[in-house]
Every structure is written in structure tokens, then in C-alpha cells.
Design a binder for these strands. Sequence first.
DNA 1: TATGTTTGTGGAATCGATTCCACATTGGAT
DNA 2: ATCCAATGTGGAATCGATTCCACAAACATA
Lengths: 329, 329
Amino acid sequence: MITIKEIAERANVSRTTVSRVLNNSGYVSEDARKRVLHVIEETGYVPSAHAKSLRTKKTKVIGVILPKISTETSSRLVNGIDDVLAREGYQILLANTNLHAEKEIEYIRLLKSRNVDGMILSATNVQPELIQEICQLKIPFIMVGQQAEELTSVIFDEYQAARDMAGLLIKKGYEKIAFIGVDEADRAVGYLRKKGYLDAMKEHQLPVEESWLQKGIFDIDSGSECMKRIMESADSKPQAVLAVTDRLAIGALQYLRQNGYSVPDDVAIAGMGGSELSKYITPGLTTIDFSFEDAGREAALLILQKIKGEHGTGINRKVRYRLVERESI
Amino acid sequence: MITIKEIAERANVSRTTVSRVLNNSGYVSEDARKRVLHVIEETGYVPSAHAKSLRTKKTKVIGVILPKISTETSSRLVNGIDDVLAREGYQILLANTNLHAEKEIEYIRLLKSRNVDGMILSATNVQPELIQEICQLKIPFIMVGQQAEELTSVIFDEYQAARDMAGLLIKKGYEKIAFIGVDEADRAVGYLRKKGYLDAMKEHQLPVEESWLQKGIFDIDSGSECMKRIMESADSKPQAVLAVTDRLAIGALQYLRQNGYSVPDDVAIAGMGGSELSKYITPGLTTIDFSFEDAGREAALLILQKIKGEHGTGINRKVRYRLVERESI
DNA sequence: TATGTTTGTGGAATCGATTCCACATTGGAT
DNA sequence: ATCCAATGTGGAATCGATTCCACAAACATA
């Protein structure tokens, strides 16, 4: 590989001068600058970012840890992050946990060893070991999707969103409303959304049957299964169902249609997530559109702030959401 | 930051010995090893990947250049890439051109400066400047989605796929078939798919009207507009339309339904891409499922091979595709 | 006893940049 | 003529690892 030393020799100057030309710093005569630039052009020389950041302690790289790469949520989040970071000359180093929570810590260490200037974690949990690992990290860190007192995070008001959605169903006249959730270890999606639903039901003095509460995982088939369990075991069939993700809702929808139920006439369905699917499916799925791009942009802005020195912790940025009412309710 | 020097001092050995423990190389006494490991544990020391790769010339990072981050195609591709790379301890450094072709070259240079061990480009064109830049690069490189003689690439048989799909429509009895394409600078999607369609039509001696050939961009709205142009300007209305992407097809579908046409009774629609949307939309969209995950995995395997030394150029790996027939035709 | 061989360790060079400092030259201002 | 600031340049240390080489001790073999 061609190095700064070779450029210096060819241009008949010192490495120092080449470095000055590269960084537009210090005094360089027009003559020397021209010679250097000419040699660089000629050779196609590109300075090694490694050597540079070994010295400067800056990499212009942000590590992004995702629970899964190919989901709409992750895509949109990364899109927002990149939108802001690219403008500032930063790049994204990806880490994918594939939903293995223990890999989060592993990747935090790996990214640290790679000297990233900051990290953004799309979190699925707030286990104390994770929080502790992050706290002792001396690198700017932003958590997205989950809240932790000690950290700077970008979150949605999951509780209120779920409560709003349940409220909307109730306002529409539905009283027997089932719920498809996920594991409560995921505090944001599992715990808070469920609580929002339960509190809305309680507020309106509506009973909740045990069999109406099902727990699935993050995919469409799981939604079908949950819906099946609800319809097969419920003493009294629900008139509506609130699923904590659009994919679960769509799975539920599929099950109902395949079993001769009409949506929303027999059972109404609402999801959460504002997925593209929700818009184009028939009937249109009522959902909550979380602006993941905004969350990504917000996270990127916060990390840039931190890199620039404004060290605040315990900051919480709430990103807005929108209720989208469509034909499924 | 804590360095190898400090570990050496604390463990009362030389830096060399610490390095040996870290890399399991050379002779180290059980005693010394234990002391070193203990200090490492105690301090939470993580070796700097920069310093390491400055010396070793390996980064365990692969640069991936995408035309757009948040599309299903990119997601699935990256998912496949990561699937293979993660197993081998590699990470992905993302670069997003946002469909600006000139940025491809820019990012290739940037990734080179970052000393990535290899690059994978999800290409949208095969401009000579791009190919030239890649050829003079002395870093393992894989091109995905477009073919170039001089390079190793992972592609689909775009021509045959489009021809198959047009053939299917013809077999179904449709004779007046319109076509929604994209710019032919995109050789794979723009040129080859169009050629496949045209050749299929010619083969069956079916006429193609000028107004049936529309050109859009990669989004749903554009599909609606193209469909509108077709229906408003065509002397003789088509019975079917083949769109080169699912999103264009879905746009067309939207337009037709909003304007009182029934799909497939009035106009049949077929897309290409095998998107998730195609499966859940009503009516189900007939499409061609390209296995982008497989393409990603294949690209990752090829880059690993190249890194290990098997330097072959001009290799072309074709990834399979599947015709998926649904209710839209 | 003399001569390898295995085992264990550290000094010092190296990777490719940046940056501090010393030094030289030039051109006003006094 | 003297002095000071601005301009221009390069030597050498530095960043944090790896790795070559020299060397020493312990042990085995001839």
C-alpha cells in the first residue's frame, strides 16, 4: 500500500508537510501544496484511517446494535440515524444480536475495541448487567426504545400509545377487547403496552378475561396462533383485539379471515407500529405510527451532541406517535 | 484508555508476553498467563482494534454499499450477508448512497481508507468509471445485482425472470400486456427485465403499443402514475400489466382499484421482487421471489473466499428465483 | 562434557498517520 | 541596522498493538 512517506518522497517534502496539505492545517507554500496534491492525484493515495485515528482518537464511526437486521423497525431506525450521521461524515458499524440479549453486551465490548466514537443500541431489555456495562463505558451512548434512568434514551410513550389505542376501540363501542402481547422482559413493548391496555379497560370498567390475554413473539404466524387460542378457548368471544405489533395484528387478521370471521364486523383488529403493511393490507389496519426515522434522527443528534462534549445523562427524548384509524375497526 | 503497556506493568511482564496471551501464540508459562489474564479481567481491558490492524493489515470489517437503506431488498440482502459474516467474526460497515450513483465511487474510496478487508456493492449501474475504480482497487470486491465481466458478481437472471413472468401472463390468455419499467441505466432492472418482456411478446407474436411502455422510479406512487398514463393514453387498453418491481405493481393496483377497475378481471397485474407486501395485499400479487438473503449469503461467502486468497475474477454466481402465482392474474 | 532443543521472556522495530517543537527565511516596522 | 512577527519546513516523538530476534535457562542427547 502507498503511504504518506512515499507521497512525501515523491513530492520532495517531509511527511509533516503532506499531513498539513491533507488536513489544511498550518503553513504550506502554494508550491509545495501543488506538488503534494499532484502526487496524490497521480498515485490515487488514500490516507489510512487507522493510523490516523490511532493518533487522533477519533474514528468517525458510530456503532449501531440492532435486535434484528431485516425488520421494518430496524430499517427505518437505521435510515434516520444514517440520515443525520452521513451529513456529518460519520459511518455506521452494524452489530446484529438476532434477538439474543446476551449478545448486546458482547457487541458493546467489540464496538469499544473498535474505538467507535459512539454507540446507539436499539434495546429489547433493560437488564441490570446491560445497564451496568453501559455505565462503565466511557463512550457516548444512546439507548433507543427502552428507558433507563441512568442513560440517555430516545423512547416512545408506549404506555400512553397502547392506552390511546384501547381507548379508541372502546370509544368505537367495543367492550370485549382481547390483547396479544409479547414477553414482559421487553419492558417497552411487553410490559408498558400491556399496562396501557389494562388501565384503559379498568378506567372504563370493562372486564378482561384471562383467555383474552395472549403472548406471542414478533412475527405474523405467532399472531395467528394467539388469535386461534383466543377464539378457541374464550368463553365469551371478544369483539375486538389489540395486538402490540402490526405483524401480530396481521397474523390475527389472517386467522380470522381463514376461519370465516369478518373483520371488523365480527372482530375488529388494531395493531401498533405503523408498518407499511398496515396501509396496504385489506382491510386497512388501524395502528399507531411510531416515527422510527425520527427516533433514529433524534438518537443521532444526541450522540453527536455527546461527542461534541455536552455530557448529560438521564436525558429522555420522547418521539411523537400518531393514531392511524383505518377500516379494521 | 487502558493499554497493553499498562497491563504489562501491572502483571509484571513485557508487552510481548501480554500480546502472546491475547493471541495464544508463542510460549507463555502458566504462571505468567494467569497473572496477565487476572489483570485483564480486573481492569476490563479491551485491546485496540486500530493499533492491531495497523500492524496486521486485517480489520475483520466488510464494507457494504447500498443504494438505499430502508428497502426490503436491502434489508434482506444485508441480513444474508450478516448471517454469514457474523459467524466468521466480521462486522459490516454501512454506506448508503441514497440512489446517488456518484456516491458509489466516493464510498469505495472512503471504505478503502478505512482498510476494510472487503467490499460488497449492491449496484444500480455499471458505468465504466465505477468498474474502473473497482478494478484498480486491490481489495476483495463483490458486486451484487449487476453483472460486469471483469468483476465477481452475484446476480439474478433478470432477463429470464421477466421473460418467464410475461410468459406466464401470456399462458393465462392475456394478450395485450403493458409494462412498467425503470430507467435503463439500471441494466439489471431497467434494461434486462424490459428485454425479457419484449422478447416474450415477440416470441408469441403479440403486438406492443408504445403507450403501454411506461417508465417510473422505485416507489408506489410512481406505479400509480404510470398506470394512469397507460389507462389514459392507450388507444387500446391492456388486459394485463407487468411491473418490474412489486412496489410499482402495487401502485398500479391502487390506481386501478381507485378508478373502478377490478383486478384481475379488468386488468391483471404482476410484479417482481417477492416482497412481503405482495403476499398480504388483496388481491395477492403475482410476483417473482428473488432470494435476496441467498444473494447476500452468496456474496459474503465469495468475499470470504477472496480474503482467504482464492482470487478469481469474472465469476458469476446466479441466485435462483421463484415464480409466485397469486390472485392478481 | 559438549552440544543441541525446547521453553520462556523481553528489547526494539514496525505499522501510517499527527503534532510539538526547533529552526530558517522573509518582510515590514522602528 | 535591528527586531519581531508571519510564513514555511522538517525532525522526532507518539498512538497501541504485533513480531522478529536475541538471549537465558532447563533439559535431553550424543
